[in-house]
């Protein structure tokens, strides 16, 4: 018989890698993904550690998706702020702008290009990143984590119908994006 600490450790160890990958796909950043997973682990332990073990999985993924959503919000605000500051900077230093710096990086790949890259993982990650966040979540929770429609609805705080719609759209888009890569 495991005590609650051992049960929690076993549970966290069983979900941490997938959770990390979900966060990494969403954020495209290893550090941000690790922060999000840690936040989700702490949140589960602090708020729901006393709940029955069978409830931990949807609760954990709920905290994880909330943390990812918060990350999107923060990033959006930060990007707005940066672009605003950049506009001010550009207005002040219009003459000092180096035209070479503004050229696109020839080694950089946009998500559509990355789908064409040989590595399956890179291609899949890139394809999933092209999806809207809600479709990403619905797809990964249903197709990979194996949550039911109702469990996914609880995690995503939406109706079962919305989950089905997000999932169907995500699946269609991914099949289209990857059809050349995965014939």
């Amino acid at each position: 018989m495991l005590d609650s600490g051992q049960s929690m450790e076993r549970f966290l160890a069983s979900v941490e890698r997938r959770a990390f990958r979900m966060a990494q796909i969403a954020t495209n950043s290893t550090d941000d993904a690790l922060d999000i997973v840690q936040e989700a682990m702490l949140g589960l332990v602090k708020r729901y550690g006393a709940k029955p073990e069978e409830e931990w999985k949807p609760l954990f993924y709920r905290i994880l998706t909330n943390s990812i959503r918060d990350w999107y919000r923060r990033t959006k605000v930060r990007n707005r702020w940066r672009s605003w500051m950049q506009k001010i900077g550009n207005a002040n230093d219009a003459e000092a702008l180096d035209p070479i710096e503004s050229l696109p990086d020839p080694d950089a790949h946009n998500p559509e290009d990355q789908v064409m890259i040989g590595d399956s993982v890179v291609a899949l990650d890139a394809a999933i990143r092209t999806l809207p966040p809600r479709q990403q979540q619905a797809f990964l929770l249903r197709a990979w984590e194996g949550l039911s429609v109702n469990e996914t609805a609880v995690v995503m705080k939406c109706s079962a119908g919305s989950v089905k719609t997000h999932y169907a759209r995500a699946l269609r888009a991914l099949r289209k994006l990857l059809e050349d890569h995965w014939p």
Partner: peptide
Amino acid sequence: RHRALEEE
């Protein structure tokens, strides 16, 4: 994970 469990 260990940090979270320490919290518990």
